[in-house]
Simulated assay, not measured.
Amino acid sequence: MATSSSGAVGVGIIGAGNISDQYLTHLTSFPDVRVLAVGDLLEDRAKAQAAKYGVPRGGSVDSVLNDPDVDIIVNLTIPAVHVEVSLASIAAGKHVWTEKPIGIDREESQRLLKTADAAGLRVGVAPDTVLGPGVQTAKRAIARGDIGRPLFATTTFQWQGPELWHPNPAFLYAKGAGPLLDMGPYYVSTLLHVFGPVASVAALGLQGVPTRTVKSGELAGQEFPVEIPSTLSVLMDFEQGGQAQSLYSTDSPLKRHGIVEINGTEGTLVIPDPNTFGGDITIVRPLTDASVSDQEILEVPQEGVLAGRGLGLLDMARSIRDGRPHIATGEFGYHVLDTLLSIEEAAASRTYVDVESTLGEVGSLPADFDPLAATL
């Protein structure tokens, strides 16, 4: 187990694909963490990413797992091997931050959490976009009572699909992905920050076409199978009250996503795209006079420092040193997964499905959290 107790926390990255650029861009700018190694099954790709971002070492997956200076592994592999790589990280004595989802089934994900707990190690789970100033400012506004009692939410993600731009999109239509498992974590995580844990879900699903075609890159023109529903219409009921209706689709020629609206007794709060860290936040007030046609729209000033991927890992690194809980915990990530799998089951059975897992109070980042400050 890595044993550093002062100075920047050592980080190693496993997975040098598309998303690694976003992580490396921001993690290499945070003073409280130091990226020491990048590993990938394609070692040349790992070495190239390490060189590009000034990371000291790049090479094999095992070289990162066995690096004595690495405290936390950042798992950026495909969903199907998230648990496998996370378990290997725990076995190597490292804390682990994993891209979403935590896994692709409940049993293996629970095994990961139990193994980490027994080893005294932490698991953190993306997305950490919900820890950015956008969602966190909105969450504080709701806690202040700015829209009264929150009643229900509407979220929307619809467009034609990632094969339009992704050079190798087949895994995004495999088990453990699709618009629900790939994009759903952003929206469900946001709703959990507002309403707390999910009690039950209902859904309808469909598959627009059985195969898709890569539209760009070296694989352009190549077809691949669609293994999951590519459109889901979802209803959610929350333990502490409140409801939500959501659409997840990659069958829509109309691009309309990033929509999160929280409707309360005294107004509607419009939250920025949960796949980003910030954006415009507005409150729409109800009409008080039938003769007035224009509703009052208030801008809510965004509080906090805008950062990017790795914000949740940074909170986890600081929390480890401070001996306090981090926010984007493995348990939170598991409840998100349990909710999403329950939605899949509800769509398949066309019945309501109870979500078995639950959560305690969901933590928040303070408004003065500064990722660019050196605190360790």
Results as ranks from 00 to 15, higher is better:
residue 187 Y to W: 11
residue 174 A to K: 12
residue 104 I to Y: 09
residue 138 A to Q: 11
residue 6 S to W: 06
residue 304 G to L: 05
residue 191 L to F: 04
residue 226 V to T: 12
residue 343 I to V: 14
residue 141 A to I: 03
residue 178 G to E: 10
residue 150 P to R: 09
residue 344 E to K: 11
residue 339 T to N: 01
residue 125 V to G: 04
residue 40 D to H: 04
residue 46 A to Q: 00
residue 18 N to D: 06
residue 94 K to P: 06
residue 53 Y to V: 11
residue 182 D to C: 05
residue 174 A to L: 05
residue 319 S to N: 09
residue 33 V to Y: 01
residue 73 I to Y: 04
residue 307 A to Y: 08
residue 344 E to S: 12
residue 216 S to L: 09
residue 174 A to G: 11
residue 262 I to H: 11
residue 185 P to M: 11
residue 4 S to W: 03
residue 368 D to G: 12
residue 13 I to E: 00
residue 346 A to C: 02
residue 350 R to L: 11
residue 114 K to P: 07
residue 29 S to K: 15
residue 125 V to A: 01
residue 338 D to P: 04
residue 96 V to W: 06
residue 177 A to E: 02
residue 177 A to T: 03
residue 281 I to R: 02
residue 268 T to S: 02
residue 121 L to E: 05
residue 92 A to Y: 01
residue 61 V to K: 05
residue 293 S to A: 10
residue 260 V to D: 00
residue 293 S to L: 08
residue 373 A to Y: 05
residue 356 E to I: 13
residue 236 M to Q: 10
residue 181 L to Q: 13
residue 74 V to T: 03
residue 15 G to N: 01
residue 59 G to W: 06
residue 44 D to S: 13
residue 135 V to L: 11
residue 80 A to D: 07
residue 149 R to V: 15
residue 67 D to L: 02
residue 313 L to C: 09
residue 193 H to F: 10
residue 5 S to Q: 11
residue 335 H to M: 06
residue 201 V to K: 09
residue 190 T to G: 05
residue 172 L to Q: 15
